[in-house]
Structure formats: structure tokens, C-alpha cells
């Protein structure tokens, strides 16, 4: 390779020292960090984020098209080689799901009957907004996605975002047509969850590239935890609805409990945003001492 810059070495001593400019800008950067930390979420930076997100929407959407095209072609090739195996898998799943469908119908009838007898008024089912993933932040200490739905579609910060398998994260910034979601794997993410079977409430903390960890409210690790137990949102704090599947217990080592998420981030192209507003908490056993999922990237 050609050696660049050889002819320019001699003139270096004459270059003006711009150290003061650097110090000023460094100080400005750190001041902005401090301002972001101590300023409210509705600060001028938050407005700028929303505006920039909306401005970037068309660019990201256009640039996504060739990526999706290539992704689909690779997917097609992969499907071609696995078609028999996938077919068999789908048949088995279909048979299993039919069984569950009949059970669900039966249970729904029972629930309707008891609702009628007891005169219970259940909350209205949540509305959904479908959105596609147009951007992704896959940085070392940051995990987020950018969606092509915003306040015009009724999306607000705090709403849960799910894909086919389970919870993906929650909305942290919402522009007019674009929003950013904090993934469960982000180190700043804190989600109140419930371990089914053990009936234990905990906070799910993101670990960047590793599996998220559970931290329990009790000092001692609760008993009854087993690998494979389902983890769902607890609804504590009233920000996220209760019962959204999150993952399952993958590893219990001492006090360290890791969760294998149902959501597959590498294959998530479309998501559903749950339009859930804080409703009266119907679960009397819910631990109100737990913080709501109010974590953000700040």
C-alpha cells in the first residue's frame, strides 16, 4: 500500500495549536452529559432526539429495503435446505396448538360463566399498533430498536413492545412517526417480572450480550425456582400489562438466575406495540413496592 502523508511531515511544526478549542468542546460534552443526567426526560435533548428520529425515518426506511431483500434471499436459500425438517416441526406444533386451542376455548367459556355469576367487570383488552423495525442500536453497552410508528399512531413512552414469542422491550422515545425502544438486554433495562410456578416477583435486569439476570426483592434467593419455569411481566407499578411472556429460567447458579428470552432479536423485523394505559391493578397480590419499568437510556 502506498505510504500516505510522507511529503507532509516537514510542515508539522507550523500547525497552530488548537488545544483551547478542544478543551472547550470536551467541557461542553461533559456538561451535556451532566445536563442529560440531571435534566428531566422532557428536556431539550429529548425533543431533539424525537425530531432527529422523525427526520431519519425516511432514510432508514429506504436503506432498509436492500438489507431486507438480501436477508430474505438468504432466508429462502436456508429454507430450501431445511424445508423437510421445518415441515415436520410445523406439523408437530400444529397438532400441539390444536390441543391448546380447544383447552383455551373451554377455559374461556368457564371464565365467561364465572364473570357472569360474580358480576366482575374485566378491563378492556389492550389495543395494538403494528410496526416494523427500521433501525437497531447494537452497541457494546446499548441495545435498542427504532420502529416506524410514533405518536401519530398513538405510541407513547412506556408502552410494551412484543413480537410473536414474547416481550421485546418498551418505548423510551416517541417521535411523530418513529419511536425508539429499549430492549430487555440493555444494561439500563429494568422490568418487573413474575416467575410462574415459584410465584416469585423479581426485577429483570439487562446484561447487554449475556442473558438478563433476575434480582429478587427478598435478601435470600426464594425457594422453588427451577430451570424451565416461565417468566412473565408482573405488572408491578402499572406501566406494563401483567402476563406478557418474557422468557424462561435458563440457569440458576448460587444467587445468579439467568433468563433465556423468548424474543429473538436477530430475527425481529416486525413487532406489536401494546397500547396499555395504567389501569386499576386487579391483582391484589401484586407487590407495589417494586419499581415500575421506568428505566431508560439516560
Amino acid at each position: 500500500m502506498e505510504i500516505l502523508g510522507q511529503h507532509r511531515r516537514e510542515g508539522l511544526g507550523r500547525r497552530e495549536n488548537r488545544r483551547y478549542g478542544l478543551f472547550f468542546l470536551m467541557a461542553l460534552s461533559f456538561s451535556m452529559v451532566l445536563f442529560s443526567l440531571f435534566g428531566a426526560r422532557a428536556s431539550v435533548f429529548e425533543k431533539a432526539r424525537e425530531t432527529l428520529l422523525d427526520a431519519a425515518n425516511p432514510v432508514l426506511s429506504v436503506l432498509n429495503a436492500p438489507i431486507r431483500w438480501v436477508d430474505r434471499r438468504f432466508g429462502d436459500i436456508s429454507d430450501y435446505f431445511n424445508v423437510m425438517q421445518q415441515n415436520q416441526q410445523l406439523r408437530e406444533e400444529n397438532a400441539e396448538l390444536r390441543g391448546w386451542m380447544h383447552e383455551a376455548i373451554s377455559l374461556q367459556r368457564q371464565v365467561n360463566y364465572f364473570e357472569g355469576v360474580l358480576g366482575v367487570s374485566m378491563p378492556e383488552p389492550a389495543d395494538y399498533v403494528d410496526a416494523s423495525v427500521i433501525g437497531e442500536v447494537n452497541g457494546p453497552f446499548q441495545r435498542a430498536m427504532i420502529l416506524n410508528a410514533g405518536t401519530q399512531q398513538g405510541v407513547e413512552p412506556g408502552f410494551a413492545v412484543v413480537e410473536g414469542e414474547g416481550l421485546v422491550g418498551h418505548v423510551i422515545t416517541s417521535g411523530k412517526k418513529t419511536s425508539r425502544i429499549l430492549l430487555l438486554s440493555d444494561p439500563a433495562s429494568r422490568t418487573p417480572v413474575l416467575v410462574e410456578g415459584a410465584e416469585q416477583e423479581a426485577i429483570l435486569a439487562g446484561q447487554s450480550r449475556g442473558q438478563p439476570a433476575l434480582s429478587f426483592f427478598a435478601e435470600r434467593q426464594p425457594e422453588g425456582l427451577e430451570v424451565g419455569q416461565r417468566v412473565v411481566t408482573s405488572g408491578a407499578g402499572g406501566i406494563l400489562p401483567r402476563g406478557i411472556p418474557v422468557g424462561e429460567v435458563a440457569q440458576i447458579r448460587g444467587g445468579n438466575v439467568r433468563i433465556k428470552l423468548y424474543a429473538n432479536y436477530a430475527g425481529t423485523d416486525f413487532v406489536r406495540i401494546v397500547k396499555y394505559h395504567n389501569q386499576p391493578d386487579l391483582s391484589a397480590d401484586s407487590d407495589d413496592g417494586a419499581d415500575a419499568d421506568g428505566s431508560d437510556n439516560e
Partner: peptide
């Protein structure tokens, strides 16, 4: 701004 990180982090690193 675009990545949603705290404003000033990447600016200070690049500087």
C-alpha cells in the same frame, strides 16, 4: 442523538 445514548458520551470519546 441518533443512538439514544446520553448526549456528550460519543462526542467526548471522539474528541
Amino acid at each position: 442523538f441518533m443512538m439514544g445514548s446520553i448526549v456528550g458520551v460519543w462526542a467526548s470519546i471522539y474528541l
